[in-house]
Every structure is written in C-alpha cells, then in structure tokens.
Design a protein around this nucleic acid. Structure first.
Lengths: 207, 207
DNA sequence: GCATTTCTGAACTCAACAGTTTAGTTTAAA
DNA sequence: TTTAAACTAAACTGTTGAGTTCAGAAATGC
C-alpha cells in the first residue's frame, strides 16, 4: 500500500484511487470496469488517477496483488497443532466455506478465473495465496496429527487438498452459477459435517 | 442446429457462422470477441452474419446453449447399474477429470464463470447440464448400489457431489490458474485412486 | 502572504467495435 | 439461361472507452 512504497505515493488521494478501483474492479472485472467509473467512484479526476498509474492494466495489477495478499492473510494464521482433528477440522472447514461463499471470495475467484488468461501472473498469484496456501497450512497440521498417531495418511498433501475440495461440495458451484438465491446455515453445516466425517472415516485411526 | 430449426436457417452459411462464433467465443469470451473476428474466422461477411442473428448477444446465447448441450451429452449416457462401485467409480472419475481438464471443458467453465453475471441464464444452464447432471446420474447409480447393499449412504446426493469434488482435487485449479505446464497421466490416476479410495472407505460396507 | 505541489474538470484525440447500408457478385434451382 | 435468393466487400455511422492536455482552483509548506 501507500506505506510500504512511499516513493510511489506522491499525493494525498492515492488511497482514494486504490479504494475506488478495488470496488469497481471487483464488481465489474477488468474489461467491464471503465476508468471513468473508477475515477467517479474514487471521487477523483481522471488526471489524478493517471498521475499515479501509467495505465489501466497497471492499476488493475496493483489491486489484484493487494487482494490476493488480503486473501492470503485471511488464511495465514497458524492452526493450533495440539487440537484433535475432530475438534479442528470443522472450524477450518467452516472458515474455508464461509470465505468461498462470501462476496469477496466469489468476486476474487471470478476475477482470477476470467482474467488469468490476460494476466497469467494473476492466476498464479491467486492460486498461491488461496488454494495452495490453505493446502500448505493444512498439510502442516495433518503432518503433526500423523506424527501423534491421530491420523494415518500416506499422501498428506493430497489429503489436505481433498479436504479443501470436500468443503466446497455443492455450494461453491451453486453460488457461482446463481443456481440458488441464498444458502442457509444448516446447509453449510451439513456439507462441513459430511466433509469431516468422510475425511476422518478415511484417515482416522481405528478405535 | 440447422436441422432442428430449419425455419431459422435461411441460407447455406449458417453453420459456418455458428462454427466461427464457437471458436472465437470459446477462445476470447464475450467481450473479448469482436464480430469482425467472428466473421473472418467463419469466412463470411458481416452482413451475412447479421442476416442470421439480430445482434452479438443473441449469437452468443445460441453458442452457449449449444455448448452446454454438448457438455450435457458427454455425460448423458446411463451408467451400468450392475457394476460394482470398485469397478465403475474409477472410470467415472476418470471421465469427469478428463473432461474438466480438456480444452473444451476449461473453456466452457471459464466462459460460464465470467459471463454468468451478464447472462444469468447461462450460468444456470451450465450448472444444470454440467455439475448437476453428473451428480444426478451418479446419484441414481449410488442408489442402486445401496439397494443392493454394496454401499451404505445416508445422503446420496451429497455423496455424489462429494465424489465429483474429490475427482477435481488439486488438478482443476492447477490447470485453471496456469500454475503448471501440463498434467501427466500418473498424476491424474493418483487423484482418481485417492478419490475412489476415500469414497469407498467412507461409504463401502465393511467386509 | 507567497510559492509549490496537487488536484480538477472539461474538452480533446484516437482507436476499436457494433451494427447498417449499398452496389454489385455468386449460387442454385427451374 | 433466367431469376431470385444468398452472399460479399467496403465504406459508413454512432458510441464507448483509454489516455492526454491545460487553464485554473485548492491545499500545503514556509
């Protein structure tokens, strides 16, 4: 942001520009967003906007970088490795699902999918700071569980990705393709419970 | 196509137009495609194109409808209900995964995601003729397995969706976000085996 | 107060693109 | 071979949107 690269920030309305761009790009995508829209939303003149960013592309990439970072931060917190899978997985699952179904999660996903052709870097960054990061954190936790003998997993990374996948079952596509109005809480819980059950069924140690 | 609605088809180049539009729309999306491009790709003049379709939107929806139907056809064949899950699931999983990773599957998914805001109908249709259809067919099969006592499932539809989800683990996003060059066969097989194993582990009857 | 930097807004250029028109050419069928 | 329908090429209109320019207004620092 402005604080990290003060050299880039020359004026007082930098943050307004970024904030406006964020709103409009997340709402309309790259092509869909017009620079005039962004300037209006930011409460700033076009000339000001162009004094900060050389073109629309660069502005977009700046926003995309910020948002993937924001996404990464949402998952960066380490999991408590001492908790049992029975206790921890439902919470993690719920967090993943809530994020995916949130307006922000949907918007970022949509942008990443539709623009990763035009901006390959963006696709990779989204992947690294989203799905890959979650899988990595989860893998670390699962490894400690297997070390403690609470789980039995041969391919830990695959297991982590399977769990992530199971949490999205049904609901991600339903929301993405507007196949439903809204998703109530009990339905989310059913999916999470199913994911945890299936996971422990497969990788839990026999009692 | 032309044969199903001969009333719409007035001239001999109808199919060329559709074919060209298909190529360009799948490659560039709705905004990214220009009508001049389509006409050039189709080997047809713009006037001819506009003699068939009133505007770009309608042309796009025609293509989208065709492609979702094509997608549906790929999964329409009934599964052999007499096969055991151990025998059938790996094949089904492989089919799902291959489709998702194919150029066509990727292109249609990408279009559906990025245009379902502009064309809500498209999103719904994609969903119905893709994920929902697969889940439905799979549910029917799983029901017959539980009836035979080969599987033990309480929520059959959820189970079907879980299996579908497991088959995409890791590889769909990897491909979608260009986080890899290409995906070799052994990796696909590993994911499918993992999916089948997990599924049977959870829903298979104890032996 | 005065000077400097930042910002404004409105008008502008330029290119791309959707859709139309027209005058003339090709095709195919009778 | 004639005729009508289908098609073409190319020029044209109107719009939208990216990026620029500039004369002047507002904020900031001294």
């Amino acid at each position: 942001m402005s604080d990290t690269h003060p050299a880039i920030k020359k004026g007082r309305k930098f943050d307004q520009v970024v904030e406006g761009a964020r709103t409009v790009f997340l709402r309309d995508g790259f092509e869909g967003a017009s620079v005039d829209d962004i300037a209006r939303e930011a409460g700033v003149s076009k000339a000001t906007l162009y004094s900060y960013f050389p073109d629309k592309r660069v502005l977009f990439l700046e926003i995309a970088a910020q948002e993937t970072k924001r996404q990464a931060d949402a998952f960066e917190e380490r999991m408590d490795e001492n908790l049992s899978p029975e206790a921890l997985l439902p919470n993690v699952g719920r967090k993943i699902l809530d994020f995916i179904l949130s307006d922000f999660g949907q918007a970022v996903f949509r942008i990443a999918v539709s623009e990763s052709d035009r901006f390959p870097e963006l696709g990779r960054k989204y992947y690294e700071s989203g799905p890959a990061l979650v899988a990595k954190r989860l893998s670390q936790y699962l490894a400690s569980c297997t070390a403690r003998g609470e789980l039995e997993i041969d391919d830990i990374e695959l297991a982590a990705e399977q769990f992530g996948e199971l949490c999205k079952a049904r609901l991600q596509s339903r929301r993405l393709f507007q196949a439903c109005c809204d998703i109530d809480d009990s339905e989310k819980q059913k999916v999470i419970d199913g994911a945890v059950h299936m996971f422990l069924c497969c990788y839990g140690v026999r009692k």
